[in-house]
Amino acid sequence: MKILVCISNVPDTTTKIKFAEGNTSVDTTGIQWVINPWDELSLTRALELKDDTTTGVKSVTVIHVGPAASEPTIRKALAIGADDAIRVNAVSSDAWFVASQIAEVIKKEQFDVIMCGIESSDYNGSIVGGMISEFLGIPSVSAVSGIKFENGQPIIIREIDGGKEVVSVPVPFVAIVQKGIAKEPRIAAMRGIMMARSKPVKLVEPVQVDPLTQIVEFEKPTPRAACKFIDADSPALLLDLLQNEAKVI
């Protein structure tokens, strides 16, 4: 059983976002780049499955679509414990482009489980995982918060509105992963960091694909009005404002 984890390179989640070039791009000065949080949790769960010898998981590979500049993020994934990595050498332009590239790689190299985070914390698209599965014509399960194997069969927990479902699908399949899949992201140990240097990163040139979407401008969220403070001993006043000013209760 081979697992592929798709990783995206995103600004650290505490970053204050600023724009550049007339609000057409994000100013990357001083940004700390990290593995997208959901991808990091996916990688952690993939490694846990490999550690458990009863699952039959033999290897965990990470794939990233990005330029050489995102190499440190790939090395971090290797330091956390991935066996090897694939980098598609292209600047990602949209979900369609990224999913097309990853699907091309999977067609050539077989994987049994493909894991993607439910969204990237930068574009908040929630599209790539589903597109990959449709390009490959294989099943996908969305909003996955648990995954294990019983007798070689994947048993998956997916979140639905108002509950959970335990489902099974045949391999190969795409798991689109959300919170709950692993408790805490695994942290790279010194030994892992040393080993990551010699782990293979396979470079793949992109296939020709025209993106379907393009961001032409960014804007900041509309600022909110200043907070009105109410005395802690007069909660009735708060309720009055909620009833008569905001009209929400």
């Binding site: 204050k16 930068d122 908040n124 961001i215 032409v216 401008e217 960014f218 804007e219 900041k220 969220p221």
Partner: peptide
């Protein structure tokens, strides 16, 4: 986009 810290014209 950016988890609500920015909005994009797409």
């Amino acid at each position: 986009t950016y988890s609500g810290n920015a909005f994009a014209h797409l």
